[in-house]
Nucleic acid binder design. Structure first.
Lengths: 341, 341
DNA sequence: ATGCTCATTACAAACGTTTGCATCAGAATT
DNA sequence: AATTCTGATGCAAACGTTTGTAATGAGCAT
């Protein structure tokens, strides 16, 4: 903190009045004379006075800051979420501290400690892929700091939650493939300790069952990034597994699969259709363009922040927890449209 | 700020000693008896005491927080920069507040106000595409808050700066195209109010001139995103401008160009070679893969933060400003390799 | 006994605000 | 002239720390 910043005391000294008068003058308190108000406000402007948010936080026991724990901001989805969070928070006069867990449990624990130490008024969390222990989140609750999970939630944890209807979205995506003529659809799945991983798989299975299609264990492969998708595809081709579609847990995985198939001379979508999840920057630029589920990250950010702010603002924080389920839209592009559909 | 959090006073009351003794005991001050230290530390642990960072900031007039103003975190380059910043900052015990300007001047001004109000110890800035007035940065300097520009700097502004050697990188990229057989290379340029826009163009021109190649005004087109690239390419094809290479100011633009060319039946790289800039997630997944300049975003983040922390830590902050120029590497992939090279 | 040192602890002020209450001068009322 | 009222301002405490200095009491030498 620089020593150069002007304080209320500086103004008071210069005007030979007390700090309390300056404070009240700045807030347009009725007790203060018009004359003094003008003098104070003019000098404040002249000296470029900025209220010290730190002192305010201490006094009011409220920092007007919310903390965000996010796995990795490099993903289009997560950075859209942040934009949504920031917009709502700033409009409400709140600042945002963003902490990346980098998908590491340890980092996540440190993040929560940092946010608590900085006395944020509330915390938004999307858990890391590694996280299996939730004590650090309990600590947040013990300290009575409002907590909202978004996207990657902890099932059964007593807190507000905002999620996408992953099951439904995965179901619709898979059904779209079936309607397009796919009969043997593989699923490149995410980690099964994350609820979203489970739900997307469930949706996929539901669609297959509903259509009376075969579901094979070997069609469900844990692969959730470019490289794992590449290896999985190579494996499939090696074993001559006969598939005509891939529903991937995210876009990077879908693109890894598409890429590898094409390299090996398999035509997409004619021979193998592909659908991704979590529509991002990448989907439009592949050839064919990738059909994907738009998760509305920005909206998720705004909704989660609104829920958090509501709890922060309310005097009685003990009203029941809310679980908000957002819709996701299937964006159909070239990668899933076989000739015959 | 929740009322549930334990303070030094709580510990003092419980142990019937004074807060100052508790404070010293926690810091292992030699004046305090072993007995008291043990008692204090045990109780602190039991109550899960977390020092109040806000109170500390006020007392020490130093928040141990640095502020970051960044145009848009959705870009791979910028989010890598953030990772670099966070890693160095956290290692030094500093928190990071990230503010997005969303490429808007107004938002950038608000961002600086927010950061100053929160008494950050230093600020890292990459200016928005819109920014042409620098008064808000001067205000930072007036308040004696250390300021480091990264990537998008303000030429001539008295501050530390970290940039990539854009001119050299653009020069090398263009020379690579020439060596690969290109003779008529267009440049899809960035905004010329940003130094990086100018320098990349300069590097391009330098390579052409050095090789004794023609430079045409109509080959330099201001296009710095997917859509503008698409339009520019359509225009080129319409006018039957005879080009055999495109050097684009960033990857999104390069991919937009590649995409449109391919849609129109122009083969890449055989007929038109393409090179992008600021190697990101996208470059690997196009077909052909995109040759691009790796700007080392993570490294830029670490270097900028180190320079900032150095100035924050030093008692005399008036030593000369530093301009660090980082190397950028050309990553050659398929999009630039013509058959005959 | 008196004075000294030493170890241990407490007190008080400070960081920049806010806010309930006291103060004060002058005006209005009696 | 004495009292009450009113409008404007100042004082002091508080938020949770840290830290210079004062205080306390024991042990020891004189």
């Amino acid at each position: 903190m620089s020593s150069g910043l002007v304080t209320i005391k500086d103004i008071a000294r210069e005007l030979k009045i007390s700090p309390s008068t300056v404070s009240r003058a700045l807030k347009n308190h009725p007790d203060i004379s018009e004359e003094t108000k003008v003098a104070v406000n003019e000098l404040a402007k002249k000296l470029n006075y900025q209220p010290n948010a730190v002192a305010l936080s201490l006094k009011q026991r409220r920092s007007n800051t919310i903390g965000v724990i996010i796995p990795e901001i490099v993903h289009y989805f997560f950075s859209s979420v942040i934009s949504g969070i920031e917009d709502v928070a700033y409009d409400a006069g709140f600042n945002v501290i963003i902490c990346q867990s980098n998908e590491k449990y340890d980092r996540e624990v440190v993040n929560t400690r940092t946010l608590l130490a900085n006395r944020v008024d509330g915390i938004l969390v999307s858990i890391s892929k590694e996280t299996r222990n939730y004590d650090h989140f309990r600590k947040i609750k013990e300290n009575e700091v409002p907590l909202v999970f978004y996207d990657r939630i902890v099932p059964g944890f007593e807190a507000d939650q905002v999620i996408v209807d992953d099951l439904e979205a995965a179901y619709r995506a898979t059904r779209h493939m079936i309607e397009g003529g796919c009969r043997k659809i593989a699923h490149f799945a995410g980690p099964q300790n994350l609820l979203i991983g489970q739900l997307r798989k469930e949706g996929y299975l539901k669609a297959l069952r509903e259509a009376g299609l075969e579901t094979k264990k070997e069609w469900i492969i844990e692969a959730d990034n470019f490289e794992k998708a590449r290896l999985a595809v190579l494996n499939i081709l090696d074993e001559k597994s006969d598939i005509d579609g891939i529903f991937a847990v995210n876009d990077t995985t879908a693109i890894g699969a598409m890429h590898t198939l094409q390299k090996k001379g398999v035509r997409v979508p004619e021979q193998v259709a592909i659908v991704g999840f979590s529509d991002g920057r990448l989907s439009g630029i592949t050839d064919p363009a990738l059909t994907s589920v738009d998760q509305h990250g920005y909206e998720m950010g705004t909704v989660a922040t609104e829920i958090l702010l509501k709890r922060i603002m309310s005097s009685n924080k003990n009203y029941p927890f809310e679980t908000r389920i957002l819709n996701a839209d299937l964006i159909v592009r070239g990668s899933s449209i076989k000739e015959n559909s």
